[in-house]
Amino acid sequence: MALAVLVLAACGEEAPAPQQRVDLGEPRPAAPEVMAVSPDTSEATWSVDEDGQSIEFGNLGEGPLLTLACRLGGEEPQMAVIRHAAARPGLSALFPVIGNGMRSRFMVDAVLEENEWRWEGVLPADDPQLDVFTGTRALTATLPGRGMLEIRGSRIPGEFVTWCRAGGETVAVEAEEGEDAE
């Protein structure tokens, strides 16, 4: 019987655990997560910028969606791959471009240029990843959360990359055997 009394006493109510309160301050609205819809690029084309140092892909009368810029000021030419899409300071992303029989992944950072937060990656002009632009087939370029660009095949990006790799010099085309050189 004594054992039963001890067991019943042990089953009694325990003292409530002390509660802690944490002040979280004023509630803030969550940052909106923007999931961009892929832009319509069915009418988009490549064009050479006024300064001749970059080419832009976009719809006529609208801002560019993608820019390739050649930077010739240093010892070796560099190429900037710029995706014009909303970016937040301090972020980085992988920007895959697929086409012409290859896949390239460009590391891009959020940069503030020309009053626009955009995604930009800079690499040496002779970097093999840029070969994705040198063919004439269609490309897809996807920035996570900012949609996919469908880019029709064109010779313009390839010619531009070749021009930049040559340091901005025009490359002479040699006549093939049997052709008359004028």
Rank of each mutant, 00 (worst) to 15 (best):
W119G: 01
D131S: 10
E120D: 07
V81W: 00
D51C: 07
F133E: 01
D131L: 05
G58E: 06
A69T: 12
A80E: 07
I55F: 05
L60K: 15
S47F: 03
W119E: 01
L91T: 15
A141N: 04
E56H: 09
D131T: 08
T67H: 04
A93D: 12
V48D: 09
S92V: 15
P124Q: 04
G99P: 07
T134C: 08
W119K: 03
S54E: 09
G90W: 05
Q53H: 09
A125V: 08
T140I: 12
P144I: 05
A93P: 09
R88E: 15
V132F: 02
V122E: 02
M102E: 13
D51S: 14
M79S: 03
L65W: 04
F95Q: 00
E50H: 08
T142D: 09
L130C: 05
D109C: 04
G61H: 08
L112D: 15
R71F: 01
A80C: 09
Q129E: 08
E50L: 10
E50T: 12
R103S: 15
S92Q: 14
L112E: 15
F106P: 00
L65T: 04
T45E: 13
I82L: 11
G135C: 07
H84N: 13
E50D: 15
G73S: 15
A85K: 06
L112I: 11
A69W: 04
D49E: 14
G99M: 08
A93R: 09
E113G: 03
R105N: 14
G121F: 00
D127W: 00
V97S: 01
A141S: 14
T142L: 07
F95M: 04
R103L: 14
L68A: 04
S92F: 03
T142F: 02
L112V: 12
V108I: 13
A80S: 15
A110R: 04
A93C: 08
F57G: 01
R137Y: 05
T67W: 05
C70Q: 05
G74Q: 14
R118C: 09
P89G: 10
P124K: 01
L91G: 13
L112S: 12
A85Q: 08
P89T: 12
V111G: 03
R71D: 10
V108N: 00
R83L: 07
P89S: 13
W117A: 07
E62W: 03
V132R: 00
T142S: 14
G101P: 07
W119L: 02
N100G: 11
L66I: 08
H84V: 12
L68Y: 05
G61T: 10
T67Y: 05
G74N: 12
G99A: 09
V81T: 07
G101Q: 07
N115E: 15
N115G: 04
L65P: 01
A87E: 05
A69E: 14
L68D: 02
R103K: 14
P144D: 06
V97M: 06
V122I: 15
E75I: 12
E76H: 10
D126W: 00
Q53Y: 05
G101V: 09
G90R: 10
A141E: 02
P89D: 13
P77S: 11
R71S: 10
N115L: 13
T67K: 14
D49V: 11
G74H: 09
L91S: 15
M107C: 05
N100C: 10
W119C: 02
E76L: 13
Q78T: 09
A125D: 02
M107P: 12
G121W: 00
V122A: 04
A85L: 10
L66F: 14
N59E: 13
W119R: 03
E62S: 13
E116I: 11
